[in-house]
């Protein structure tokens, strides 16, 4: 990928053929979870190969569980490293959460307590993983539905980890919106407090509002207007392009709809790029 505007889409089995032979969607790159494609043969191995021949690949992991008390899963990382090399993956990102505890995978992203000792712990884990993979990884701010025994705010937690671990940030703008709604904080102020110079990658998605009090981060709906606005605001604070992903995991609409969403994202990028040119 070059330094231009790049808008990607998650490569999902339900719409795999649209990526390979369809004409409606034209992403600049694709993103997958390595856990869903590593070790896999047969039909999906063939489809995945085909996709990686056509599009640049970004990886967004599920099982690293950077917030686990236990050591990183070295056996998994040993398999991941050649996978990254094989497909020329420039960005490997993971969630700032834990998905494994006491040697049991939970396949769910649970919130790490926002505490000083957690920051120290997670920073050490990220460094261990980066040393092993010999690359910077990008850590994503996750949506969470309850804090756990918090002593610092989420923005402090994210910022300190990213800065101290010297890793990149995958800024999920929809997650910022969802969390600001659920936990009643100002989304723009949250963006202001992020280390935007560390942002390597941005996620955008739709969500599901289940009550006046609660939004669930589902990736099953179209992006809503306030999230586009927050995205626009974020880009206005940044002075360079990073890849932008449209996350859509189920409840797939017509492909034209997804293409339209990608186009909306591109237009906002173009607008901000032009403004940067005017300002400089």
């Amino acid at each position: 990928m070059n330094n231009d505007i790049n808008i990607g889409l998650g490569f999902r089995r339900e719409i795999a053929d649209e990526f390979l032979t369809g004409t409606s969607i034209k992403p600049d790159f694709i993103e997958v979870a390595p856990e869903n494609w590593m070790d896999m043969g047969g039909y999906w191995h063939a489809k995945f190969r085909e996709a990686t021949e056509k599009y640049p690949l970004i990886l967004h992991g599920l099982s690293l569980s950077i917030g686990s008390p236990e050591e990183p899963d070295w056996a998994f990382l040993k398999k991941l490293k050649p996978f990254l090399n094989e497909f020329n993956v420039e960005i490997y990102s993971e969630h700032l959460s834990f998905a494994k505890l006491d040697n049991a995978h939970l396949y769910d992203l649970l919130p790490i307590p926002f505490k000083q000792d957690s920051i120290k712990h997670v920073v050490k884990r990220i460094k261990q993983v980066q040393d092993f993979l010999e690359m910077r990884i990008a850590i994503e701010n996750v949506s969470y539905y309850t804090p756990v025994d918090a002593e610092v705010t989420e923005d402090v937690f994210v910022k300190q980890i990213v800065e101290q671990a010297d890793c990149n940030l995958l800024l999920d703008v929809n997650n910022v919106y969802v969390n600001s709604f659920n936990h009643k904080y100002d989304a723009e102020k949250f963006i202001d407090r992020m280390p935007l110079d560390k942002v390597r990658y941005i996620h955008m998605a739709g969500h599901h509002k289940i009550s006046d009090e609660l939004i669930i981060d589902t990736h099953g709906e179209a992006i809503i207007h306030p999230v586009y606005e927050l995205f626009d605001y974020t880009l206005s604070k940044m002075d360079r392009n990073v890849p932008i992903l449209l996350e859509r995991d189920f409840n797939f609409p017509e492909m034209e709809e997804l293409q339209k969403e990608m186009k909306n994202l591109r237009n906002i990028c173009i607008k901000n790029q032009e403004q940067d040119v005017i300002l400089s």
Binding site: L101, D102, L110, P113, Y145, T146, P147, V148, D149, E213
Partner: peptide, 25 residues
């Protein structure tokens, strides 16, 4: 706290996870 949260998620047995909301859990 992490162990309590994981136990709650896996079993649904009240695990008194500190500093959480009932709705979130």
């Amino acid at each position: 706290s992490q162990q309590r949260l994981s136990r709650w998620v896996r079993t649904g047995e009240n695990a008194d996870v500190p500093g959480t909301t009932a709705e979130g859990l």
